[in-house]
């Protein structure tokens, strides 16, 4: 008897030109101890079925392209070891809460629109000329936002968020965390330009602090904490402006 181990990978397939609804397809691939789910998908694509579509790029948890549902959990497939599932079957589906374009590829338009809406870049009231040098920052000022700057836009948090699943207008964990990242940056002066998005009904107030976004985040950004911090700051400022309407409104 051969000691050639195999593992079953069941993949959700959707080819809009051929079928009206998604179906599934099971492939049996060689099991290797050092393979991740993405390796198995690439093996299928290269050797078994070239029609399977999925996104991937860096293979090392940096690009955020290969997020998929692995046995019902949002995961970066480049970081999901096959050995953690073996000998059970692995089920790979596209990230939930997003429309499917084809097979494991989802439509990211909604997320991209929300990301743009929070203006995730440094905003200055007035840019100083390049000749005056860079905007310097102390290590403590960097520490204030560094954790929230680690987001790779993989959208696992949107797939994990039950609120986004119910309410697609919700700005969502990653976009709010990135807006918060720039609001915390000592070089930034754009908090007022983001506030109407972040503190809107569709923004932080929609979040009920389930916390699944932070559980699945592969970069430990903790978007739930970003939302919570923003809620506290916005509430404190609102009460301050009621008690001291003449005060500095930030």
């Amino acid at each position: 008897m051969s000691d050639h181990k195999t593992i079953k990978i069941t993949v959700l397939r959707y080819r809009p030109e051929e079928e009206d609804a998604p179906t599934e397809q099971t492939y049996e691939v060689e099991f290797r101890d050092d393979w991740v789910v993405l390796d198995a998908l690439n093996h299928i694509k290269d050797h078994i079925d070239g029609t399977l579509s999925f996104r991937w790029s860096c293979r090392m948890g940096v690009c955020g392209s290969c997020g998929m549902m692995v046995n019902g959990e949002p995961k970066l497939t480049c970081a999901a070891m096959l050995r953690d599932y073996y000998p059970k079957e692995v089920r790979v589906e596209p990230l939930v809460n997003f429309p499917i374009v084809r097979d494991l590829v989802t439509d990211m338009t909604d997320f991209m629109d929300k990301l743009k809406a929070v203006k995730p870049w440094i905003i200055r009231e007035e840019e100083k000329p390049v000749s005056e040098g860079e905007y310097r920052q102390t290590p403590d000022q960097l520490k204030d936002y560094k954790q929230f700057s680690q987001c790779i836009n993989c959208m696992l948090c949107y797939a994990a968020c039950p609120v986004y699943g119910l309410e697609h207008d919700f700005v969502g964990p990653a976009a709010i965390a990135l807006g918060h990242r720039y609001n915390l940056d000592s070089r930034d002066e754009g908090i007022q330009q983001r506030q109407h998005v972040i503190a809107s009904k569709e923004g932080i107030w929609e979040c009920t602090y389930v916390g699944e976004c932070s559980v699945v985040c592969p970069k430990h950004v903790d978007p739930a904490e970003a939302i919570q911090q923003t809620k506290v700051a916005t509430t404190t400022n609102r009460f301050k402006s009621l008690v001291m309407p003449w005060g500095n409104k930030t």
Binding site: S200, K231, V232, R238
Partner: peptide, 18 residues
Amino acid sequence: MNYKEHKSEPFWWGMFSQ
């Protein structure tokens, strides 16, 4: 999407939080 800052929600959330 036209976003608008929600002015009353901080009050209700503040009461909820306390």
